[in-house]
Amino acid sequence: MKKRYAMAVDTRRCVGCSACVIACKTENRLPHGGFRDWIVQETSGRFPGLSMEIRSERCNHCSDAPCVSACPTGASHLAEGGVVLVNRAKCTGCKACIASCAYGARYVHPDGYVDKCTFCLHRVQQGKRPACVETCPTRSLTFGDLADPGSAVVQLIHSRRNKVLKPETGNRPNVFFLA
């Protein structure tokens, strides 16, 4: 069975501490100002009738990824498990992918190529979890294979109310937010 990597983000457990952000930055040697993941806090209502959702966000590794279609050089591509990757050697830094991404998941690396979340595929290939998942002190992040019905990520998506971001784009994101 072909792997389809995905992530579930539990917004009830998450406190928005940014441990995922820092772990990603050191794991992947990101440049100053470059982020592959980030925290969103959304508050609604009026004082004192308020509610809040906290999300650890990153590239959604869309099944229909517009960034891959938009890339004129083939740098953006679907890799193992449906992970969207950028081949630095092929990337010219034209930013077509950045314009096409509905989630702001990409940035231009100072070395001239576009960079983004890889689901830490270099770790996953060695049987490890992505760095953000590993460090998360609230265990809000669950990474796994959608094609494996026994995986924790499938269990969570089946048992908990969840959503993807901007479903109207038709991108079929693979990051699921558990309510």
Binding site: T26, E27, N28, R29, H77, L78, A79, E80, L85, N87, R88, K90, T118, L121, H122, Q125
Partner: peptide, 13 residues
């Protein structure tokens, strides 16, 4: 075909 030599970059940390 997804069979090219696109490397999976290892940041080596």
């Amino acid at each position: 075909w997804g069979l090219d030599g696109d490397p999976v970059e290892d940041p080596g940390t």
